[in-house]
């Protein structure tokens, strides 16, 4: 069971809702992923098209919990205003806090992130900060009041998997009791399985599912990988070693001696 801000979840796969070929495929993918949490955002609404109204009724029909993000925010001020607007429209204290610091990598501005997290936590938000694997930043975010961290695997949408295995393992080992969700950069289900095998609590996937040739099949594949990774982690993986170690017992081997 995964616990995020006192909310118990049986699924360890969180799904983004952007970039699907159609609303119907999005709906089917969320079901195939068996996701209980989906991320959503806020954008300018046209009075004529009212695209947001249709999207919101689709999400409500899914019956899942929503995690609004502050995607696209490049300053603390923008992120705070967006968080306030999201809390009103989505009626949840949850906020996936993104403060982007660099446009090529969409790397978080960790200084702005900590500052915004401190303010939002004090205001009663339950903050899910999109961060790097940096231990000191993680410590500052926890001091600011965050009770969940979302370190990146690789730049958003890059599909590269876990870029810094050493850093991520160190983060996991350093904060054994903090729910850690790998957010961003995963490309294939094996990346997700690896994250769970390393002891991460969950993964958030968007592009890898939405932009797959068959998003619904890919959502199902990620769900299986996440489940396999979680079971494997609980089962206690062996340590990797440099030299061979025979798996078949050596005692009683024929033709010797």
């Amino acid at each position: 069971m995964l616990e995020l801000y006192d909310t118990a979840l049986s699924s360890r796969l969180l799904l983004g809702t952007a970039r699907y070929p159609s609303p119907a495929v999005l709906t089917a993918a969320v079901r195939a992923a068996r996701a209980q949490v989906v991320t959503v955002s806020l954008r300018r609404e046209s009075a004529g098209e009212r695209a947001g109204q249709g999207f919101w009724s689709l999400v409500r029909e899914l019956g899942v919990r929503v995690l609004p993000n502050t995607a696209g925010c490049h300053s603390v001020k923008e992120a705070l205003t967006t968080a306030h607007m999201a809390r009103e429209v989505f009626a949840t204290p949850w906020i996936k806090l993104e403060v982007i610091g660099e446009d090529d990598t969409l790397q978080p501005d960790v200084f702005g992130l900590v500052e915004a997290a401190r303010i939002l936590c004090a205001e009663g938000f339950q903050v899910f900060p999109y961060t790097t694997e940096d231990l000191v930043v993680a410590e500052r975010l926890l001091e600011a009041g965050c009770r969940v961290l979302m370190p990146w695997g690789a730049p958003i949408g890059s599909g590269r998997g876990l870029n810094n295995l050493y850093g991520l393992r160190a983060l996991r080992a350093h904060f054994p009791d903090v729910p850690l969700i790998i957010d961003a950069g995963l490309g294939v289900p094996s990346h997700a399985a690896q994250a769970l095998e390393l002891g991460f609590d969950a993964v958030l996937i968007n592009t890898a599912v939405a932009q797959a040739r068959d998003p619904v099949q890919m959502a199902a594949a990620f769900a299986q990988a996440v489940e396999a990774g979680a079971v494997a982690c609980a089962a206690g993986p062996i340590e990797a070693r440099d030299l061979a170690s025979p798996s078949t017992p050596v005692i009683g081997t024929a033709f010797r001696g």
């Binding site: 983004g16 952007a18 959503v40 806020l42 300018r44 609404e45 919101w56 609004p68 995607a71």
Partner: peptide
Amino acid sequence: EFVASEARVRTLLADGDRLEILAPMQGG
């Protein structure tokens, strides 16, 4: 600055104001 829905009735606009009107949208 965020304007909560209950404050809209008493919030007065002035020439040159910048108003953002946002709604739920797909996000990652």
